[in-house]
Design a protein around this nucleic acid. Structure first.
Lengths: 240, 240
DNA sequence: CGCGAAGTTGACATCCGTCAACATGCGTGG
DNA sequence: CCACGCATGTTGACGGATGTCAACTTCGCG
């Protein structure tokens, strides 16, 4: 798992330069719908938000959870997912028009770029979680992700339902439930109610999730271009 | 599946305002490593790139494929994945410093924002694919994604290996292989070699993938805030 | 022609989805 | 405060899908 994404200083500094609106939604309310024109993006101030799509057969598929400080709705053109409030939430709403309309006076876009970088990191993180093979691995990675977002507090609050977790991890609520109890039986977590879990063996969870524990590669600190630079193709490859 | 992400006009227009370097890598070469400082981001000019992470047990996990026009490496802080050339590739390399160093003269960041939006859309798309439950659904969604990126040409070039596809979808090469033949037996695709597939029944593939065929929601064209706006919490919820 | 890498296919075991039953928690109303 | 009902969550049995292991085939390259 990559380190928790702290709000970059630059974003705080320039926050006032983008026009924002503060909004509140009650638990379960829709913030925007799939297919709507993506005219705004959002930052969670308080509470939890989920993004989801629906298959034609009615099955739901969640593509992300967003907590305080996270960004969602940064889509190009049309929203590819809907966004719903998991709990009562307060969000800050940024207008896309502020950056894409050539005529308008432009605010400092450093903040926008910074926000989008954070959103990218979040999406990458989720891709890694969902890509795991077994239910144990997926749930372990999921819990570690929440853990990191909560400043490594072993007491986790899981505001979402089992169904939400299942639809996010590509499992059923039954498997999610069974896997929770198995993690508890293995002594990795302690379940303290529907929305509360304590991590009792973080190393064990990391091993299950297959993650290097807080590993970064400080030696390779970004040389100009690690490998060869201008190398000409020797044998043809199938490519576009 | 969301519509293919066309390169926005604004990006083309302002392309020259960001400093870029054009680089080439041979098939298999590493472009950047997981854990390196994320000092650059990249756009594929020609060829195919994959991003990947490794579990502690050595298993590989791909988080994305990037084709001509796609953006990768837009990470905050450190690269959360490595990037490797699937085929011989030409990439354009953007320096992060160009937008985050306050002292420097700032280029027009509209392009950067536009690029990041596209990268976000791509990540969302991949999340949707990997989140499917069965191997058939995953592979169907994957093929449709490639299909859309190729301007809906039914002839698909799959430059990556079966192992790449497996590590991306969270399956094994055996299951991927079996699923390919099953899709062919069902008459949905025609396999024309290791790196070439023809889609013979797009509707059937869409049904498998659970996607609304090119569905957008033009009626709901983004009202200010679909649901209630300022609503105060009635009952306490577990949240951060 | 021969070798190794990549891909395919089959047999079998395991994991997870399905179905069903039950337990728990929560809100409402008595 | 308790009774009730519904939504949510848990657990078990079973079958099907997928990982594992193994054998074979195909392809590309020397």
């Amino acid at each position: 798992m990559q380190p928790a994404i702290a709000t970059p200083a630059i974003a705080k500094e320039f926050r006032s330069r983008l026009l924002t609106t503060s909004l509140r939604f009650k638990a379960g309310q829709v913030i925007f719908d799939e297919g709507q024109k993506a005219t705004r993006w959002y930052e969670v101030v308080r509470g939890t938000v989920r993004t989801c799509r629906f298959h034609i057969d009615g099955r739901r598929h969640l593509t992300g959870f967003y907590f305080s400080g996270d960004v969602f709705g940064a889509d190009y053109g049309y929203y590819s997912t809907a966004a719903e409030a998991v709990t009562d939430v307060t969000v800050q709403c940024y207008r896309v028009g502020d950056i894409s309309q050539p005529g308008q006076p432009k605010p400092d876009l450093s903040e926008a770029v910074s926000i989008l970088f954070r959103a990218m990191s979040s999406a990458q993180k989720y891709l890694f979680i969902v890509g795991h093979r077994t239910a144990l691995e997926k749930l372990a990675a999921f819990l570690l992700c929440i853990h990191n977002q909560n400043n490594d507090d072993p007491h986790l609050l899981l505001p979402m339902s089992r169904a939400d977790i299942a639809d996010f991890l590509g499992l059923t609520i039954h498997t999610v439930s069974r896997t929770f109890t198995e993690l508890a039986q293995r002594g990795l977590i302690k379940i303290e109610g529907r929305h509360s879990v304590v991590i009792t063996d973080k190393t064990g969870l990391c091993r299950l999730a297959g993650e290097m524990d807080n590993f970064t590669n400080p030696s390779a600190d970004g040389p100009i271009h690690p490998a060869a630079e201008f190398c000409f193709p020797k044998h043809p490859n199938p490519e576009t």
